[in-house]
Every structure is written in structure tokens, then in C-alpha cells.
């Protein structure tokens, strides 16, 4: 008798659990499709011939035609814009890590007044809308001669990338037990030698990942690039300017070229991005 009642109540409980799991699965599916569908459409259209792109109904299999991409790359100014993008992203990467990693180290190793406030402030810089700053920045850049230069734009991009660089390297350095450094000190190292011989080799992969992340932030940024450059446009700014007036298949090719490096880089460093938010995936 009691066994029967127990079973009767157990069944709905298991049922609810099952429904819950179903709900989670559906949510994950929707979110994934939300992100993946545009990327997929971009990919098949970039890899199709102009005729296929404009045809209806559309095929869901790429035609594996590279003529759009080839034409796009041959388009006047694209390669130069690509070069500018790489230059700006490169400078951003160096500046963000060069300034961010020491800040991350200080945050993880030293106790100082206003440490928590500093961490919040670092994040707060992301709360400033770039359009608000664009006009005064443009005026200032013109006055100082930084306008339309790769370095000037890289400075703006560094501002955007720096908070992430600080927080990622902070979590990297925090992952290295301080005893390792202390052991090195007792074994004859100065502070600098201990950092160089013990800490650096251990964080280098993570530093590389966060450098790549800074690179991607700069690579993807379009607003400041469009406002602050005229002759030396980066790829994003160049596309923004030219793609409106291009035929459909070229838009897709341009979009794909823009997305691809970012996708590859983000995929390569995903582990460290998770670590940044405290979700250890290791």
C-alpha cells in the first residue's frame, strides 16, 4: 500500500525533472541557432556564385564557388584596408597587453587601497558609449595630428581592449600560487628573476590568448574606425563605406572575410575567456 503511493508521487517528480531538462535543451538549441544561423547563411552565400546568391529558393548547401571571394580580394583598396586592420589590431594588442598585464599582476599579487574600486572602474570604462566620445575625440585627434593614423585608432581600441586584458591577466596570475614565486625567492631569485623564470613561462599561453582577444576587439571595431580614419581605413570601416553600393554576393564575401578571423581567434582562446568569468573549464 505504501509502496504504491510512493510510486504514484515519484512518477510526476521524475516527469517534472524530464520536462525541465527538455526546456534547457530547447533554450540551448534556440540560442545556438540564433548565433549559428547567420554565420551559416553568410558562409554558404560567400561560397556561392552570384547566380546562386540571387536565386530563389535558396540552396542550403554551399556551391563551393570562390569567385566572389576572389573578386572581393581583388577589389581596389581591400588589401590596403586589410593591412590597416592588421596594423591597428597589432598595435592595440601590444598596448593592451603591455599595459594590462602589469595591472593584472598588481591586482592579483598586491593589496593596495582602492583595489576593489579600481577593478570596478576598469569595467566601468566599458560603460561609456563610444558615439558620445567620438566627436570630442575626433577634434582632439585632429589638433594633435593623431587623426587618420593607425596609432591614433589603436589608442582608442586599446581603451576598449584594456579592461579585458586587465581582468583576464588578473585571473591568470591569480591562478599561479604565490608560493611558487616565494620558493623562487628563497632559492636565490630577485622579484624580477622569479617573475621571469617561474611566473612568465606558466602564464605565457594565457597571455597569448588574451593578446589575441585584444586583437579581435580591435579587428571588429567599426564606429571609431569609421569616424577617425579617412585615407587609412580599416577593413570594417572600408566595408561600411563601400558595401552598401555593392552587389549582394560581394556583401556576403566581405562579411565572411570579416567574421572568419574573429571566429577562429575566439575559438582558440575560449578556454581563457571562460576562466575570466570564474567558470573553470580545465
Amino acid at each position: 500500500m505504501t509502496a504504491v503511493t510512493a510510486r504514484e508521487t515519484a512518477v510526476p517528480a521524475a516527469d517534472i525533472r524530464k520536462r525541465g531538462r527538455f526546456l534547457v535543451a530547447i533554450t540551448i538549441l534556440i540560442l545556438s541557432v540564433w548565433v549559428l544561423a547567420p554565420i551559416y547563411l553568410l558562409a554558404i552565400n560567400a561560397l556561392s556564385s552570384p547566380a546562386q546568391v540571387n536565386a530563389f529558393p535558396k540552396s542550403l548547401v554551399p556551391g563551393m564557388e570562390t569567385e566572389s571571394i576572389a573578386f572581393f580580394l581583388g577589389f581596389a583598396g581591400v588589401l590596403r584596408a586589410l593591412g590597416n586592420s592588421i596594423l591597428v589590431a597589432g598595435i592595440t594588442m601590444v598596448l593592451a597587453i603591455g599595459l594590462g598585464a602589469p595591472a593584472g599582476y598588481a591586482l592579483s599579487r598586491f593589496d593596495f587601497r582602492g583595489k576593489d574600486a579600481f577593478r570596478i572602474m576598469v569595467l566601468m570604462t566599458r560603460a561609456f558609449p563610444l558615439p558620445l566620445l567620438a566627436l570630442p575625440l575626433a577634434v582632439m585627434f585632429i589638433r594633435t595630428g593623431l587623426d587618420d593614423t593607425a596609432f591614433g585608432l589603436a589608442l582608442v581600441h586599446t581603451t576598449l581592449a584594456l579592461p579585458f586584458a586587465v581582468l583576464i591577466t588578473f585571473s591568470l596570475f591569480s591562478g599561479i600560487p604565490v608560493e611558487l614565486e616565494e620558493a623562487a625567492w628563497t632559492l636565490g631569485c630577485t622579484r624580477f628573476q622569479a617573475f621571469h623564470k617561474v611566473v612568465l613561462p606558466l602564464v605565457l599561453p594565457g597571455i597569448a590568448a588574451s593578446a589575441v582577444f585584444a586583437f579581435v576587439i580591435s579587428w571588429n571595431e567599426v564606429f571609431a574606425a569609421a569616424v577617425l580614419t579617412i585615407q587609412n581605413r580599416t577593413l570594417t570601416a572600408f566595408l561600411l563605406q563601400n558595401i552598401n553600393v555593392s552587389p549582394m554576393h560581394l556583401k556576403f564575401a566581405g562579411g565572411a572575410m570579416l567574421v572568419l578571423p574573429a571566429l577562429i581567434f575566439i575559438f582558440a582562446v575560449r578556454r581563457y575567456l571562460f576562466a575570466m568569468w570564474g567558470i573553470a573549464s580545465r
Partner: peptide, 14 residues
Amino acid sequence: PRQRGIAMVFQNYA
């Protein structure tokens, strides 16, 4: 530490 002529063994080995 490096100038004190000591060596140390840590709890988590380090």
C-alpha cells in the same frame, strides 16, 4: 630571502 642563507619547504610543496 635570497641573501639569508636559508631554504624553505612549503606546505603545498611549490
